[in-house]
Amino acid sequence: MPTLSLKVNGKAVSGEVEGRTLLVEFLRDQLGLTGTHVGCDTSQCGTCVVHVDGKAVKSCTVLAASCAGASVTTIEGLAANGKLHPMQQAFHEEHGLQCGFCTPGMIMAAVDIVKRNGKKVDEETIRRELSGNLCRCTGYHNIVKAVQSGAANM
């Protein structure tokens, strides 16, 4: 099996992967980073969203091998020095989560939305850009509010 070396949450890591190993499998099974979830097989639910080289992608539809040399950020790497990222804080403050299963992907997607659209991203843009993240609990109402308030503090 080929060895894969990359950076995950700022740390250099390496592991042996098969050709078919998906990034999400590498993160969960080899690195034990179980905050990244799998909720579907068709690249739609968004519970697996992580950042690869600064871009939000669905880690269930990325081959681990293709991430050689890349820099990956997962939900576990978002808080810096023990302090919650403003988007994590906003999800807490606005009650943007219930069962929590979609939450890591939702937060990673939200951070990416703000990075590309700025602090004043409007509600319509947030809703449109969350089309790749499903939540069954919240009705999205408080998630949208959380993204807006998290954006303001980013």
Binding site: S43, Q44, K55, V57, K58, V62, A109, S131, G132
Partner: peptide, 9 residues
């Protein structure tokens, strides 16, 4: 096309 994450790839 697709969603943001699809468009990134």
């Amino acid at each position: 096309i697709g969603g943001v994450h699809v468009r990134h790839k």
